[in-house]
Structure formats: C-alpha cells, structure tokens
Write a protein that binds this DNA or RNA. Structure first.
Lengths: 176, 176, 176, 176
DNA sequence: GATGAATGAGAGTTCATTCAT
DNA sequence: TATGAATGAACTCTCATTCAT
C-alpha cells in the first residue's frame, strides 16, 4: 500500500466520522488528503469501494477490542474486562468507534462485527459465577455496555470512573 | 396546515428514516408525496427548513413518551414504567424513533430531548426505595434502556418479554 | 414540447452529425442550445435518452422519404422515383441523412428503417416490366442507391444530373 | 517493432472497429493488449498517434486489394475482378474494412485511399468493351460496389453468390 | 523497453433552489 | 396554493497524459 493510499483512507475516515458517508464528497476527501481526486478512484474504483476498505479494516480493529476477553479463562475477569470495555477507549479509539457506529446507522447495518463468541463467553461466565439467568444477564450487560458506549461516543458521559467502579461492584462484589 | 403539506412531511420523514437526511433528495420527497418539487420549497423554504419542522414535531412526540412517568408518584411505578419504556413501542413508534436516532447520529446531535426531569424523578425513586447509590443507579438504568432501545430500533432484539420480566424482577423484586 | 427542448434536440442533432455521438459532450450541446446543462437531463434524463428521441424522430422522417414510392402504382414510376431518391435531397435533407448514417455506423446499427415494403414494391415493379430476375435487380438497385447516397453525403458526387439521366435511361429506356 | 507494440496496434484496431475511436479509451486498449497504459504512450506519444499508425498501415493494405486489377490488361478481367472485389473478402478482411469505413465516418474522411488509378482503368475497360458511356458506367459500378461493400460490412448481405453471378452476367455476358 | 502511481481537465448526472404562470 | 421549466453548483467518475523508477 502506497503512502498516498493510506492518506486517502485516513482522510476519508475522519470525514466520514464527522460528516457521514453521503455528506462527504470525494473532492473533500482528496483535498484533505492532499491528492488529486482521480487518485481516489485509481485506488478504490468507487467511493463505495473506499468505504468498504475502511469498513473491512474497521472490522479487524473492532475484533481486536474483544479478542482479549474471548481468551480469558477466569469468569470474574471475563466480567471485569467486559465492563471495562467502554472505559478503556483511548481518544483515538473513540474517534474510530464513532466512525463505525455512525456508518452503521447511516447504512442501516446492525452490527459491524459478529459478537456471538463474546456472548457465549459471557454466558458461561455468568453461569460459573452462579447467576440464576445467565442468558438474560448476558443480554442485559450487553445492552448496558452498548448504552454506555453510545454516551461515551457522544461525549455525554461524565464521571466515568465512578460508574465503572459501581458496575464492577454490582456484578462482582457479592461473588467474592 | 394543508393536506399536501402534511403529505410532504410524512414522505420526508419516511425517506429520512430509511435513507438519511443527506441521501434524500427533495426530488425524491416530492415524488413520494405526489406533489411538485416547487411546493416543498413554498412550504418549507429550504430542505433544512423541512428537517427542522420534522425535528420540532418529533421533540413533542418524544416528550409525550416520558411525560407519563414524570407525573407518577409511586417510586416502584416510576421504575416499572421506565423499564417498560422501550418495550411498549408500537410499530409506528419504532419507525418514528428510528428517524430520531438516525438523524441525531447524522447531524451530530446528542439528545433530541432534555431528559433531566426524568433523571431527577428516577433518582428520587431509587432513593425512596433504599438503593445505596441512586445517582449511579439512575445512570445505569438510563444507559441500559438506551442500549435496549437501539437494539429494538435495529430489529436485533428477540424475546423482549423475557427480558422485560427479568429486568422488572431485578429492579423491583427485592424491594417488595 | 417547450421551445428550449426543441433547441436542445436541434443543437444535439447538428453536433452529433458533425462530431459524432460519443465525441459530443452534453456541455457542448447545452452551450450551443443556449441552455443550462441540467436542462438537457431534465428533459431527456440521460444523454442516451436524448439520442433515442433524435433517432425516433429521424425514423419518421426517413420513412416519409420512401412513402411516396410505396403508394405509386405505375411500375415505371416506381423505378423512376426510386432512382430519383438520392438526387432530390435538399441541403437540409443531406445534413439529416448524414446524421442518420453517421450514427448508424457509430452505434453499429444496420438500418434505421425497415425497407422491406419498398423492397417488395420494387420486386413487383421489375417483374411487371419483364426483368428476368426481379429479386436480384431489386437488390442491385438498392445497393447502387446506397452507394450513391453515401457519395452524396460525403460530398464526393459531381455531375449528379448526368448520372441520374444515365440511370433512368439504363433502367427504363429499353422498356418503352 | 517489438512484440508488445504489435499487440497494442492489434488491440486498438479491434476496439476501434467495434466501439469507435472516441469511445475507446487508452485504458481499455492497454488492458486488452495486456500492457501498461504508459507503454501505449511510450510507443505512440498520443492516442491520435496510435490512430495514425493504424490508418497508415490500413492504407497500404487497402491498396493491395486493388493493385491486382490495376495490372490486369484484359478488359473483361478488369470488370470481373472489380465485381469480385467485395465478394472475395475473408472474415479478417471484413473486420479490417469495417475499421476503415467506421473510422472514415467517425473522422469525416471521404476516402481512405485514392481510387483514381482504378477509376481510369475501369473507364478504359468499359470503352474497349464498347460501352456507350464509359465514365458513367464506371461511376455506377463504383457506387454499386460501394453499396455492396457496406452491406457486407454490416452483415446484411445474404446469398452473395447469386448476386455475384448476376452482376458478372449483367456486365459481361452480352459482350462474349 | 516497460511499469504503475499520479494528475488535471472534463465527462455525464444530480442537487437544492428560483421563478413565471 | 400549486406547478413545472429552468438554473448553476456540486457530485461521482473517466479521460488522456506524465513521470519516476
């Protein structure tokens, strides 16, 4: 991959994240990347082709967020790491996630990544820890984290640390 | 408001909900509404003007979803009604909410409606019911309901009833 | 049909005739017609749509060239009128035919108009006049006229009158 | 001339013949030839340069079609060979001629090759054979052959053999 | 000789918007 | 109120061509 190709992907990602896919013109992308507009099409054939490359790369990155949990064996740590998920995002991660979620809404895609493995893992963890209804606990935790995530991405979450401790306590304290 | 004006609003709402604001052309709106493109501008001046009317009307409607809770005095009912919120949405409500959330993401708006009154109400309820950390409980419930909402809007929530019962149990059982 | 729509058709016809379909840009057409480029697409949807309208109108006009012969009953007159065909073209007709032939070659179309009725008519005429092989005489006359036509369109035919008399003599003299 | 240069000429000829000069992009040519687009310009400087090479080579080849007749001394054979001209074209010849005619129409060129020598030859032959108006006979035969040629190139000539015999009879029978 | 990255101009087309009727 | 013709700017994409390697 040439340097300019990378620059285009970077510029497009930033613009898609801030303005959305449709509202971002290839002209704007090229200008931001400092290349000719033609080059965008030389490398990605269409604007949609560029989008797909970004989406594909994103999928990989999102997966890596979760992979640590899937290989965890201690059920308590599974819960802890899952709860930690939204709180440990770096500034750059947040920008990246914003892009993913924004595109998902714009393009009517449900989920960027198949979360079933993580779901199973959580189910097992809840069971091992003696929760009465592991499946519904899993769902609940998922939706909760999704909601927290959304708040973080929109910048409307304050006092993240308190919330994190609160949740870890809620889910783990009584089991220790 | 003339009949045609209503038709335009309706057509635009549906298109914005399915394709997004930017990706929907005034031409498509006019065709779907069965009116001339000129009429759209006669009534709303600009495409953005039309959007604002839709957004304003939406705000009213979203408020009505919550108003019932704000006037509830029994703390248990406050919790129960709050949890019920996402599960009682009709098909049409869902379509409407989808539009709201989709536009919020596309236009980088955090919240369509100021939820502070509801937040306060929930805080009081949690306190009355003896929860140790009412503020964080409120936040948590909010994020959870947000996450469930998102799942419902994206059509990825199955077995809603079990989840609802599970949550009502979780939040109310030990207090009864 | 609005006045501007006609102007566009006229401008496009002239440009297609001189430069060809592909080499003529919609921008050039609009400029020559003195209208905005957008209007071309408002009226004809695509450049190809504009072409089709021109082709369709052309078909009508070409038919009218031949219709006089089809309704002729005297076999000698049928021959005479057929031979006359290429020689009676006005300056404007020639421009028009040039467009038809040019587009036919560019677009790989064999014949703009179905000439079978004329073919039949000529066959009957040759038979009535005692020619030994009416079908092949018909074909031959057709190809000859086609060749003459091409020469006229390319401006390479000189002394048209002599050729016309010569041909009429050749085909009619010995039968009188 | 390197092998790749030949391939480019071949690919371009085929594409020009099927799609026309303007509608054929240098990108398509390079892809069909299996070479880089840059090489096209290394060898021919411009797209037009490539066209000229093809046209020049074509001229040579077209001349060769006629040269046999010009060196014929027997007037009957001159006529016979002239009539035979369009009927003896091989599949490949037809493809080649199609290119020539198509380009001639697209580029507004009248004749690819100077046919005056052939014209003179035919005039002499007609005179020797006692035709009353050799010049006009020559013109007529030329236009006829042109028309037949066009039909062959467009694939609309059927029963070529009958037509050929018919014409040879028409022009030579009464002289033997 | 040959490639492939890169460009700027221009292609066809869609857009939100205006205006006369 | 409502239409439909008309526009100019912007859109995605293709073009012939250049140049470093």
């Amino acid at each position: 991959m040439t340097e300019k190709k990378r620059t285009i992907i970077q510029a497009a990602s930033e613009l898609f994240a801030s303005d959305g896919y449709t509202a971002t013109s290839t002209n704007k992308i090229a200008k931001k990347a400092g290349v000719s507009e033609g080059l965008v099409f030389r490398h990605f054939a269409t604007k949609e082709g560029l989008l797909e490359v970004i989406l594909k790369e994103g999928e990989q990155r999102v997966k890596s967020f979760y992979s640590d949990i899937v290989f965890e064996s201690d059920p308590k740590n599974v819960l802890k790491k899952t709860i930690n998920l939204p709180f440990q995002l770096s500034e750059e991660d947040i920008e990246f996630m914003k892009l993913q979620v924004k595109l998902a809404w714009e393009l009517n895609k449900k989920e960027v990544v198949n979360l079933e493995p993580l779901r199973l893992k959580l189910g097992v963890a809840f069971k091992k820890l003696g929760f009465q209804n592991p499946e519904l606990e899993t769902d609940t935790l998922f939706y909760l984290i999704d909601g927290i995530n959304a708040a973080i991405l929109q910048g409307s979450l304050k006092d993240a640390d308190s919330l994190k401790s609160f949740l870890i306590n809620k889910y783990l304290d009584n089991t220790e």
